[in-house]
Write a protein that binds this DNA or RNA. Structure first.
Length: 428
RNA sequence: GGAGGGUUCGCAUAAUGGUAUUGCACUGGUUUCGAAAACCAGCGGGAGCAAUCCCUUGCAGGUUCAAGUCCUGCACCCUCCGCCA
């Protein structure tokens, strides 16, 4: 959610953002609701002031009559105010965040901009297989049984692949808590930031509707798993519970940035993707993920996002998987994002780059509803928030399978992972 | 799932149904060579240039001229019972 004052003072900017982000919103309707809301508010405040003034102490019968009438009048106005406010809130929710100046403008993914590529795409002396072929051949992925037991888009990850999941978690965690390494990554990316290491967290995977709403992640609802008996949702990302962790809290400036690295399962209904990516584990209802989340000072938030991308690149480079970094354009990015950067790993079996990471700069869009603030010399203000994939384990496993496959059909274990994997060099 | 107790500013506290008290901490000022102490002010949110006004006692409703206080529902915390990885 944006600041209504900002909206009032930057109507053209908001109109442009609505258009570029293809948001479904009539801004004039919002502005009218805002005006009506403020009018009714001041009207009721004047009457309440009178009520407060006259209700001090015991009343004469005449006063009681008059105050009773006043009370009814206030009630009428407040009823109208309530319905106007509901409309206002509903519309405020739909106002998208303002894209940063360096965000490409465009209507769909064709306008996304590749910022850089890294790594040499390996030349195979055989036709590289897709991950699901390798997975089935080595009995690492069993979608068939999973669909019998749980339904389509579920999987059993087995053997070396299951083991490698824990290996990846262990390895990645060791990176995110390493302050020296973070310092180096900050320096290499030319960022002027504090070196606070990431705090490891295992957050809840169930979340209440209210918290989800404040994170601006309740929509699209058809993408969420919901359990009516308890009025609770399954998270679609650790971001949902990590970001909401500090709602209604005020930080001290010196404690920022606060960085978390969270591990959780993510649940997605994948509504509207019927028939897409049905094979293997690229698009499933349930996958595990390491997620970065941070709370920082407003002036640092773009750099903080760059650090998040730097962390992603460090990890992917150390796995020696070619990738490209993509600036997502206005029409393709999320509504709450001010800037979205994706990282796509090279998948030789598919012969293309596929999205494996995303980094979202939220500015104060989520913090405003969450009530997460920082106390500063000039008063308190809303913090800026960033979230980003640290490691989407399923898709990283795919990239490893496809990039490290051998002619004889086995998978070589990336060097950096071997010491976490009991010395196993090859999955066969 | 059941029984009881609780939730007031960062912390701690007060308030016969009569309009949120006080202390600590914090911030600014006076004082000082500097600091401590002392003193003054501020110390939840909103509207306004301002005077000022409104809202705010976990949340949402209700009763009342008036609700921290009474009533209803919900959330969370604590103690105990039951069940349980």
């Amino acid at each position: 959610m944006l600041d209504i004052k900002f909206i009032r003072n930057n109507i053209d900017k908001i109109r442009e953002a609505i258009k570029n982000k293809k948001a479904n919103l009539d801004l004039d309707k919002l502005l009218a609701a805002d005006e009506r809301r403020r009018h009714l508010l001041s009207e009721s405040e004047i009457l309440k002031a009178e009520q407060n003034k006259r209700s001090k102490g015991p009343q004469s019968p005449v006063d009681l009559e008059e105050l009773k009438a006043l009370k009814e009048k206030i009630k009428l106005i407040e009823n109208e105010l309530k319905s106007v406010e509901e409309e206002y809130e509903r519309l405020m929710m739909v106002v998208p965040n303002i894209p940063t100046d360096d965000t490409p403008i465009g209507k769909d993914e064709s306008a996304n901009k590749v910022l850089r590529k890294w790594g040499k795409v390996r030349k195979f002396d055989f036709k590289p297989k897709e991950h699901w072929e390798i997975g089935e051949a080595l009995d690492l992925i069993d979608n068939e049984r999973a669909s019998k037991v749980s339904g389509a888009r579920f999987t059993y990850l087995k053997r070396g692949l299951a083991l490698m999941q824990f290996t990846l978690i262990q390895y990645a965690m060791s990176v995110f808590v390493d302050e020296k390494l973070i310092k180096k990554i900050i320096k290499n990316n030319n960022l002027d930031l504090k070196t606070n290491p990431f705090i490891p967290v295992i957050p809840p995977v169930l979340i209440r509707p209210d918290s989800m709403q404040k994170m601006a992640r309740l929509e699209p609802k058809e993408e969420r798993y919901y359990m009516p008996a308890d009025d609770i949702y399954l998270v679609g990302s650790a971001e949902h519970t990590l970001g909401a962790m500090h709602m209604d809290e005020t930080f001290n400036e010196k404690d920022l940035p606060i960085r978390y690295i969270g591990y959780s399962t993510a649940f997605r209904r994948e509504a509207g993707s019927y028939g897409k990516d049905m094979k293997g584990i690229l698009r499933v209802h349930q996958f595990d993920k390491l997620e970065m989340e941070s709370f920082c000072l407003p002036e640092d938030s773009i750099k903080e996002q760059d650090l998040f991308v730097g962390m992603q690149e460090y990890l992917v480079q150390s796995l020696n998987i070619p990738y490209q970094v993509v600036a997502i354009c206005t029409g393709d990015m999320g509504g709450p994002d001010a800037r979205q950067i994706d990282l796509e790993m090279w998948m030789p079996g598919q012969d293309r780059y596929r999205e494996t990471h995303t980094a979202d700069l939220m500015t104060d869009y989520q913090a405003r509803r969450l009530g997460t603030k920082v106390k500063r010399a000039g008063g308190s203000e809303f913090v800026h928030m960033n979230d980003a994939t640290a490691l989407a384990i399923g898709r990283t496993l795919i990239a490893i399978m496809e990039n490290y496959q051998t002619k004889k059909g086995t998978i070589e274990v990336p060097k950096v992972l071997r010491k976490f994997m009991g010395g196993i060099k090859e999955i066969k």
